[in-house]
Nucleic acid binder design. Structure first.
Lengths: 149, 149
DNA sequence: CAGTATCCAGCTAGATACTG
DNA sequence: CAGTATCTAGCTGGATACTG
């Protein structure tokens, strides 16, 4: 010891940098919506439920309450674990409400909050960008991949 | 065999669903930008380079060319592997250009393309939403976590 | 300088089985 | 119906070492 090695300085930088990233609101948001199922659940509850990709009409769709099994059926590929996990996360973040009705077999319904709706609206921006530019990206990829197989 | 089991139908649904997701432009976009380093590289090349989080001025910043080592230094936490991987992916997608100058030790510089700039602009929408709403989310989390430790 | 190559630890998604 | 619990296989990111 004695000499402060460059490696040590580097390591410190990383820790600081990671700490910075951890509190960065944009990153937190990104970490949430990058989750495959989060966006899909949002879409399911947000109204653009049909399995058609776009339609692109401005109608935000009516945010409707859905039961666990309904969502599960709509998002055919989701596992129970992932669905529950996603719903819990969204509930925790105040994006959706979870309502338990003690009927004979319990009934649980989920609904978007204003905050959730707001997030859902925001994802429209993403979708619209994607629809406008993704073909360019795909074209670039094709060209790039052609060069050296 | 003989009876088409429900499980089989289910499995088929999943395959179809996954196939649908695979071609969905929004998902493709999300898969790209959900990558931690993609956004950071975009920001680095886009101009909002300072380690300050916001500033929130409308100045999109000048897209400037940067060398590999510059980016590496700016994004303190990135490993060479990840940086190279990210840069390659962005180049493949036509977001950035890679220019090799055969000087004594080779010099490689990266720069945003119009497409990349467009994507970078779009992420501003995300950042702005994050800054407007993330505190609400955080508050919700705190309340949620309080209930049952 | 700007990578490439390799190996490995850790996290995560999914399958499966069980329950109030 | 709406979950919870458990186990594991696979992917991903990081550390490390080497190169034109």
């Amino acid at each position: 010891m004695g000499t402060t090695s460059v490696a040590q300085k580097r390591a410190l930088d990383k820790v600081e940098y990671n700490a910075f990233l951890a509190v960065c609101p944009s990153r937190q948001l990104l970490d949430r919506i990058s989750d495959k199922w989060v966006v899909l659940v949002l879409c399911a509850l947000g109204g653009d439920a049909s399995d058609q990709d776009d339609a692109a009409d401005g109608t935000a769709g009516s945010a409707k309450a859905m039961r666990y099994s309904e969502i599960s059926r709509l998002l055919a590929g989701v596992s129970q674990k992932m669905l529950t996990q996603t719903l819990r996360a969204l509930e925790r973040d105040g994006m959706i409400t979870r309502t338990v009705t003690p009927t004979v077999p319990v009934t649980v319904s989920y609904e978007l909050t204003d905050l959730g709706l707001s997030l859902h609206e925001m994802t429209r921006g993403l979708r619209s960008w994607a629809q406008d530019h993704m073909h360019q990206v795909l074209a670039h990829r094709a060209t790039y991949d052609e060069h050296d197989v």
